[in-house]
Design a protein around this nucleic acid. Sequence first.
RNA 1: GUCCCCGUAGACUAGCGGUUAGGUCACCACCCUUUCAAGGUGGUUGCACGGGUCCGAAUCCCGUCGGGGACGCCA
Length: 474
Amino acid sequence: MVRVRFAPSPTGELHIGNVRTALFNWLFARKNNGTFILRIEDTDLARSTEEAIDIVTSSLKWLGLDWDEGYDKGGGFGPYRQTERLGIYREMVEKLSNKNLIYQCYCTAEELEEKRRIALQKKQTPKYDGTCRNLTKEERQKLEEKGKKPVLRFKITPKIIKFNDIVRDDVEFNSALIGDFVIARSDGMPTYNFSVVVDDILMKITHIIRGDDHLSNTPRQILLYEALDAKPPIFAHLPMICGKDKTPLSKRHGVTSIAHYINKGVLPDALFNYLALLGWAPEGNREILSRDEIIKEFTLEKVAKNPAVFDEDKLAWIGSNHIKSLSIDELTHKSIPYLKNAGYLSEIIDENLFNKLKDILEAIRTHLTCMSDVVNYVDIFLKDEIQFEKEAEEILAKEECKVILKALLEILKKGMPEFKTLISELKLTTGKSGKDIFMPIRCVLTGKIHGPELHYILEILGQDKCISRINDIL
RNA sequence: GUCCCCGUAGACUAGCGGUUAGGUCACCACCCUUUCAAGGUGGUUGCACGGGUCCGAAUCCCGUCGGGGACGCCA
């Protein structure tokens, strides 16, 4: 039985790289009829917030990644929030203590920082030097009396640690190069390397799927598994997602949180599709895939080893493809919040208005890559006053243009013919054709030289509005 | 600095010893067309480098270079 987890630390926005990690865990679970667990790693009291937990859960839900066990819904291996598991960590500390595998360290953060700095300066490997490893009881007592609160360090046994990683194949580390690391802070809180291992053991995690940045933590964790008499799970380290400069996506790349894409109105299915394709590819040459297709084909063995650059252009292309496959009703519903937000719509939308919106969306849908794009195309339909582009003004200023518009006005005064009939009538009365008639109409009705097909524009605006816009110019 | 990982066009990837190195985004051209978009057709751009092994290397081995990660009382 496959059991995987996504274990974010709730310290702010949910990063797109973490979302990808969550997605791959979820895909692996769903593919194998396994269990997907959401665990909150909030032992960093200074940075963890409740608000950030809400961001994590709402973002995952938005993407459609549901969890089977988690801090908010329980499960047989809870609690699923690390600050609620402190007793468990204490027990495990006790276990290591009984085996004489840990010791108190009284070095201050400043001292350690200084030593690290000097080591780096001397071009040596910064590594805890074991100052406190062999402190006598008396020495410890003295330090305690001075009010020093110790951290707990794990004693590294020098050995070659080998493990197999589904993505990386065989990986090997020499633990002699690793210093004794901290498993509990002076305030008693467990550190990441310790709490993950304890939780993953107790939650019976079978596969650890996480970012590449954790690869070099793995030997430490394997040592802890062994110390706690547990068998290490199977690892799969995912390549990083990078920005244009090829360094892992971080704050300095600007927008890196999923919130940005949610707000933009990127379809969840589109982001899901795009993220799945970052470091993974299905059999064959398909690019646009549904959730079910991705689940069906997903395997960790096919995950790429090399980092991937996040490409907004391709996301947009995938987005427009998913928008194409939406029904017009769905598309219209999804556009409404963005139209309201931009001030195009009031709260109440009756059936007439909804139908008009449907027509508008049908006219502009080939231009959309995400839902917030709608606001760039609807002004010509929903605004009373239209803005004229310079090129449009130039065209409208021409004499031959006025002739066309006058003829058009005459036709429209009699009624609203079918578009094709209208155009052939115009051709007859003016003797013009092609661009010569179409451009003036487009310019007078929209103020722009580009836009949706003309027949949509006439139909949506209707007789009265068309007449009044022509009159404004003549 | 040490250790670990990675290296197919501008970007994402397919490729597991014999391929004219395939697909997608972007870009360019043409077609379609009332404009733009969409759609269609075609095109430019790539195996980081140097050595081996082999009849034969993008693919296996070694080295170099380049990028990244870890070396935290962050996760």
